[in-house]
Amino acid sequence: MTVRVQAEPVDAGAELNGFAQDRHDVGAVVSFTGVVRDTQGDLQEMLIEHYPGMTESAITKIADEAVTRWDLADVLVIHRYGPLKPGTPIMMVATAAAHRAAAFEAADFLMDYLKSRAPFWKKEVTSKGAAWVAAKDADEDALKRW
């Protein structure tokens, strides 16, 4: 299992190529990359604040839970913080398993929990000023699926 919280850019392709390499028991690798989206056509940057210390432990706890629930060969979670430009990756998740169902489900579970239980906060900076992104009820409701 790998959990990284970093300011540096994420090269999703390189990360994926190196993930679960040489594991001959792996038949399925699923990945998700979250990208900074410009919803109004005016986004200059997205500022991501986090809680150093708790961020790493909260993500590790979520990844541990995924490993308990599904038969996974490996899990990767990378999440960035700091100022990010539109179109660049914010985070990525990858899961490896013998079969695809476990890899897909675990990746979906990880994303739902990272959204609402990992201590990150997003602030959008546009020409009109800066505003914190509010959490969505739908994101909280999504946790009930699990």
Partner: peptide, 10 residues
């Protein structure tokens, strides 16, 4: 003790 708004990760 930490206080913060609902988290918006991912």
């Amino acid at each position: 003790v930490a206080f913060f708004p609902p988290m918006t990760g991912g």
